[in-house]
Design a protein around this nucleic acid. Sequence first.
RNA 1: GCUCCCUUCGUCUAGUGGCCUAGGACAUCGCCCUCUCACGGCGGUAACGCGGAUUCGAAUUCCGCAGGGAGCGCCA
Length: 467
Amino acid sequence: MIRTRFSPSPTGLIHLGNARAALFSALYAAKNKGTFILRIEDTDQSRSEHQYTELLQDDLRWLGIHWQEGPGVNGPYTPYWQSKRHEIYARYYQKLEEMELAYPCFCTDHELALNRKIQLSRGQAPRYPGTCRKLSKEEIGKRILEGKTPALRFRVPVQTLVEFVDLVKGPQRFNSDDIGDFIIRRADGSSSFMFCNAIDDSCMEVTHVLRGEDHLANTPRQLMILKALQMRTPEYGHLSLITGEDGAPLSKRHGSSSLHDLREAGYLTLAVLNYMSRLSHAYDEKKLMSFEELALNFHLGKLSRSPARFDMNQLMHWQKEAVRMLSVKEMWDWVGDSLREIIPSEKRDLFIKLVQENALFPADAHVWKTILFENKLQWDNEQLGILKGAGKAFFSAAQKSVEKHGTDLKAVLDEMKAALNVSGKGLFMPIRVALTAEKEGPELLHIVTLLGTDEVLTRFKNAESVC
RNA sequence: GCUCCCUUCGUCUAGUGGCCUAGGACAUCGCCCUCUCACGGCGGUAACGCGGAUUCGAAUUCCGCAGGGAGCGCCA
């Protein structure tokens, strides 16, 4: 049974990199009919904010990622909030202390910072020097009596090779001597990420951990903890990072860097899903795929080892595809139901159909709503040139034809062709500009139908008056 | 500084020693279709970071270099 998880900390909106870790974890579980777990890592009370645990779940659900265990659904390994798992961690701290594989550390922030500075200036790796490593029971007792509250450090074994096969990067080998004793419980009693993340994965029987590449060097630490406790270890796969268009790590200054931003910007779930799935994972299929299809064709072995750039062009491509796939109802939800009230009921279907072929975002639909249903056309100089080029006679002829044929555009055009000896672009462009003040857009036939005879006449008249 | 990761068209990638005069998609350019944009069709431009080694043969293996990134936190 495959079990994967996503374990965000509620300190902010879900970053695209993390969202992708969640996505791939969910896809992998889905592909293998396994279980995908959501676990909230809120051990850092000072930085965790409740609002984010809700937002993060909303955003995940929006992306179409659903968890079989976690907040809201529970499961056999409850609770799924780390802040509520203190007793569980306490047992393992005790075990480690009993085995003397963990020891209290009384060093202050100041001492540690100073030490790091000295080591760095000497060209050494900034590692914990082991100050409290050999404190006797008496010394420890004395300090505690003095009112000092220690943190707990893991005693890293000496001269030990930690080896594992990374699911995407391949065989890895680390020397324990490159790793300093690290904190597993803070002085305030809370658990550090390094510790509870590993413990929870093991306790929850997670089989495959897919996470960001930035955790690769953490893996030997977590493996050492689990090994010391004789607990089962998951397999790890480290996903390459997503960078901005300039190759630098994705950040706020690149614009949309969180799922939430994308959602707010009007991107569709399927667009984001297809784009993100294909960032550092190759699919043979070129068409837009559903979550299920993406899962079915997901292969760990197809995950790329190299970092991938976030590319707006490509996202836009999937957005275009996704918009075209929308049903009429979905289109209304997407463009905003308020538009309905402005548009007469008999014209709604046609409006949606027309917008669907030309819009990338809801705002585009609003532009066409304004053009077609609010009478405030403004021609710019170039457009005025086009109108004047056609001339007053053109538009008076147009009005005459419309009066006779109504919105039967073909009849109108035929008559104008014969009367004015114009055709092609010379015929269509002045009409398009007169009716929409745009040089591009949906088919004129549809535009004329939506406008109706009276409005078409008004607009031709206005065009004539500026010639 | 130390440890680790990464490096194929502008971008995402295919590629696991001969099928590679390196394939696809997006972007871009041109043509066709066409009332415009889009769609669609056809075609073009465009890449194996550098240097060695192994081999009859290397994008693919090995070594070095360069560049980019991560970790070395009482952050996660």
